[in-house]
Design a protein around this nucleic acid. Structure first.
Length: 714
DNA sequence: AGACAGCCAATTTTT
DNA sequence: TTGGCTGTCT
């Protein structure tokens, strides 16, 4: 094996990290504070195990995100031979389970070629199930019912358990829906994300041979972000680790922010009690933030009862005291961000050093408006994801039906896309007939005549064309035509390009580019099946972080990232903590952890803010300051009362901007790179800067900050 | 089949 | 304020 000496593997690690890397056997819990180098520990440990003679095929390292898996794999690959890295399993829970189910689909009552449904597919299937049971979709909204089902699944409770737990008629009905939904998944030869894990858990329980095989195979388990595991996931790794208990988990109770999705803090908190021989190692040295930031974080989180006690410290100096600004309203809060930003830019910071973090997506709007005014480039993380785009989902649905003809969800998506005269009535009739015959919709069309299915002759004609199209495409796949070519075939045979062009010429170009991108991804896959697997499990395409723009995102999206400068906005009761979390102590603790995660993203400068008044769901609301602020002692932050007292900009920075006369007047014609030509409608002097209102010929009215707007007189 | 008004609900979302 | 869905009209 081409690995360095043990010496090298432990190089540059602190004592605790070194200990964590080199404990060989038995259960290990690494309590890894924010920024304490846990990824490093995890990768080094994999290498260390290999050096100690553990075979690469005996190691299973599990993460939650593809990104984390990829990072870990890349770092391991740098240190070990190609052969070794190829037989290592470094993957997400879902990929690992999918891999197991592809080999043993029968343990999950599946057949080969099964489809993985993402949240949207699953919701569609559930909604159809609810309608089939003739329940009112108002009283049983798919979203809410799915939340209940998903939470049951996270806790390994099946429909029967849900029914026996049910207190009222409503919950009993939900249990009925749950059962019907599970049946529908099997009928569609499909799994949702939850079932990827749960079917492996139940499959291993029921099939001793398969269980023992994987238990023997995976002698060393490593789990990242252990605090985010739910019961099902925990059961999976416990089962696999059962014989030898070489289970190494890394996590931080204070960063558990997915409780609402079923993550069970009890997994990490109770780990050493369940496995009494556990060696617990706490990583408290932080390599990211200054101590001023860590002190705020530390004091904040000590209020939580449910946690592993620890105190972060760093060698990065005291640093500047976090700043807290109380704005009059959400707009002024956004102005605060912009004005601080300008000062920071003047100090020589780059926009990519800066992130604005908020609790809910809706909060980005005002920020975006103010940033646009100032002509400040930004990107919002977590918008519509690549594989969520309609054109992408449509083409993928065509591909899915070729691999899994039982996939009614995919079929329903494309049967009338593009329009081919198969309306909702026809689809309804087809679905019903197929159901009574216990076959999928596509099979129904292939096996029975239009008469038998109760379809009109006009509908039958349109359907025949559709079935022929699918048959043609399927023949292509059987002939071994490569995935990107199949993609081309789908696009050309369906005249999808025309559909895009007709629908909205303005967005057509971008959507066509998306299809081209899809084709490129397909070209990299080994097979059509592999391509579909990848699209199902790897939903996001990495955003380009090196762009020179600042970042806006929710706390959840920010987890695992770091920025020199961080703004956390909206520190008000009802926003952060969120209104919906005010009811229970557990939820408040989770909100507090959210803020903890947010502030520990900051390396050098932390700015937090609240607004006395803000618009919220179309109304103006007045919220008291967040309890998380009130809980903090005065010493850990500096309170800023008004924008005028902005501490960072020196008078030289501020004065010229305010005194300089505006280079244009109301009525002048101006040019902007993005919006073209327009007329200046108003110039308003404001506290921080002046606002310039321009009415663009093409883009309508826009408001800019005078000092930042790149407007040229024409 | 498609367009449009009216109604309702509204965290967070690694896979 | 926004978006999604439903029902009605053309």
């Amino acid at each position: 094996m081409t690995v360095g000496s043990s010496q090298e593997v432990l190089d540059g690690l602190n004592d605790r990290q070194r200990e964590a890397v080199s404990v060989l056997d038995g259960p290990v819990l690494v309590v890894a504070g924010a920024g304490s180098g846990k990824t490093r520990v995890l990768t080094r440990r994999v290498v260390y195990l290999l050096e100690q003679g553990v075979s690469p095929s005996e190691i299973l390292a599990i993460t939650f995100t593809n990104k984390a898996a990829r990072e870990m794999a890349e770092r391991v690959h740098e240190l070990v031979s190609v052969e070794a890295s190829q037989s290592l399993w470094i993957s997400t829970f879902h990929s690992a389970c999918s891999r197991i189910l592809r080999v043993h689909p029968e343990i999950g009552r599946l057949r080969s070629g099964f489809t993985i449904y993402d949240a949207d597919d699953a919701r569609r299937l559930l909604e159809r199930t609810i309608r089939t049971l003739e329940l009112d979709t108002k009283r049983f909204p798919a979203r809410a019912v799915m939340a209940k089902i998903s939470s049951a699944k996270a806790n390994l409770r099946g429909p029967r358990e849900m029914a026996s737990d049910a207190v009222g008629a409503y919950d009993r009905l939900v249990a009925t829906v749950y059962q019907a939904y599970e049946d529908a998944l099997i009928a569609n030869n499909a799994v949702d994300f939850d079932n990827l894990v749960n079917l492996v858990v139940s499959g291993l329980r029921e099939h001793t041979g398969v269980r023992e095989y994987y238990q023997r195979r995976f002698r060393y388990l490593l789990v990242d972000e252990y605090q985010d595991t739910n019961r099902a996931q925990n059961e999976l790794i416990s089962t696999l680790a059962e014989p030898e208990k070489n289970i190494f988990v890394v996590g931080d109770s204070d960063q558990s922010i997915y409780g609402f999705r079923g993550a069970d803090l009890g997994n990490i908190i109770g780990f050493s009690e369940r496995l009494p021989s556990t060696r617990t190692i706490a990583l408290e040295q932080n390599y990211r933030s200054t101590n001023a930031i860590l002190e705020l974080a530390n004091t904040l989180i000590t209020r939580n009862a449910l946690r592993h006690e620890k105190t972060l410290w760093s060698e990065l100096g005291q640093g500047e005291l976090p700043l807290y600004f109380v704005a009059q309203d959400d707009r002024q809060e956004a102005e605060f961000v912009v004005s601080q930003l300008m000062a920071l830019l003047a100090e020589g910071h780059s926009l990519r050093d800066v992130a604005v973090i908020y609790r809910t997506n809706a909060q980005s709007r005002v920020l975006e408006e103010e940033l646009s005014k100032g002509g400040i480039p930004y990107r919002v993380v977590g918008g519509v994801r690549f594989y969520d785009r309609r054109e992408i989902r449509d083409i993928l649905a065509y591909l899915r039906i070729l691999v899994n003809p039982d996939d009614d969800v995919a079929l329903s998506r494309i049967i009338n896309t593009p329009h081919r005269g198969i309306g909702s009535g026809t689809q309804e009739q087809l679905a019903t007939s197929a159901r009574t015959r216990n076959v999928s919709m596509l099979h129904a069309l292939e096996l029975f005549s239009a008469d038998e299915l109760g379809l009109s002759s006009r509908a039958a004609k349109a359907l025949t064309h559709f079935v022929e199209l699918v048959a043609y495409l399927r023949q292509q796949v059987q002939d071994g035509v490569p995935a990107p070519v199949v993609v081309d075939e789908v696009i050309s045979r369906t005249e999808y390009v025309d559909l895009i062009n007709e629908e909205d010429p303005l967005t057509a170009e971008g959507r066509l580019e998306n299809l081209a991108e899809l084709r490129r991804v397909a070209a990299e896959a080994d097979s059509l099946e592999a391509f579909l697997e990848q699209t199902a499990l790897f939903s996001a395409i990495d955003a380009d972080l090196d762009q020179s723009s600042m970042t806006l995102m929710t706390v959840h999206m920010a987890k695992g990232l770091e920025f020199p400068i961080v703004f956390v906005v909206g520190l008000e009761e009802g926003i952060f903590p969120h209104l919906r979390s005010l009811t229970s102590a557990d939820q408040i603790e989770e909100e507090r952890r959210l803020l903890y995660v947010a502030v520990t993203r900051a390396k050098e400068r932390l700015m937090i803010s609240s607004a006395r008044r803000r618009s919220f769901q179309g109304n103006v609301i007045y919220n008291p300051e967040s309890r998380f602020i009130s809980e903090l002692p005065d010493g850990v932050y500096r309170r800023l009362e008004s924008l005028e007292y902005s501490p960072v900009p020196t008078p030289e920075h501020r004065q010229p901007r305010r005194q300089e006369p505006a280079p244009y007047r109301v009525g002048d014609r101006v040019f902007h790179v993005r919006y073209g030509e327009g007329e200046v409608r108003a110039i308003r002097e404001r506290s921080v800067d002046r606002e310039v209102v321009v009415y663009f010929d093409a883009a309508g009215e826009r408001v800019f900050f005078g000092s930042m707007a790149k407007l040229k007189l024409v």
